[in-house]
């Protein structure tokens, strides 16, 4: 994978053709629309923000306005082929519960989140300051990222919850990072299933 890509395209590659997809924190519906158009996927997005719900409606993407903190009672066990949870886990109070819910509702879960162990972040902390980077553009006092974790941390959390990691890598600078992702990537990506 040498060509520069976007996180969206990279994630889309992990989703099988024709999959039934639930996209938790689907934003403006861009990824779902992309999956529908290029891979014949179907499914729903879940989003809390009014503007994003409207953007999804304008795109013609199915969107359900819900607060993820309230859980996924609307969705039955294993009712989706793939559940996506991209750049949302770090905003949730009930991170672990949501991860379990993701694994319950889908056959496969795919999550991504900012990797706090990326080397510039480590350097920043060594210098005594919390990192402010392209991936983590917020100051410590106004960040929506209330969960601060690393690529390596997620492996522990996944094991704790009986999740089998099918694939994991980092993403940085428009490329997948497969060597030392905990050090060299600003974003962590995991694909897993329930054991």
């Amino acid at each position: 994978m040498s060509a520069v890509t976007t996180e969206l395209e990279l994630i889309a590659e992990l989703v099988p053709e024709g999959a039934r997809v639930l996209d938790l924190g689907c934003g403006n519906g861009e990824l779902l629309a992309h999956l529908q158009q290029t891979k014949g996927c179907t499914g729903y997005g879940v989003e809390i923000n009014d503007d994003n719900v409207l953007a999804c409606a304008r795109r013609g993407v199915n969107v359900v306005q819900l607060n993820l903190e309230d859980g996924l009672a609307l969705f039955e066990d294993r009712s989706f082929d793939v559940v996506l949870q991209l750049q949302t886990l770090q905003h949730l109070k009930n991170t672990e519960k949501m991860l379990r819910e993701t694994a319950r509702v889908g056959r496969i879960g795919i999550v991504s989140f900012p990797n706090f162990a990326h080397w510039p972040n480590r350097l920043s902390v060594l210098q005594g300051r919390m990192p402010v980077t392209k991936t983590l553009p917020y100051e410590w006092y106004d960040t929506p990222n209330i969960r601060v974790g690393t690529h390596a941390d997620f492996e522990v959390l996944a094991r704790r919850n009986g999740l089998q990691i099918l694939d994991s890598f980092g993403f940085h600078g428009g490329r997948a990072v497969r060597h030392w992702p905990n050090l060299l990537a600003s974003v962590a990506v995991f694909k897993f299933e329930r054991r």
Binding site: R20, T42, V53, C56, A57, N62, V63, V64, Q65
Partner: peptide, 9 residues
């Protein structure tokens, strides 16, 4: 598996 969008205003 019916297409639905839901807005909670």
């Amino acid at each position: 598996r019916i297409d639905v969008s839901y807005a909670e205003i």
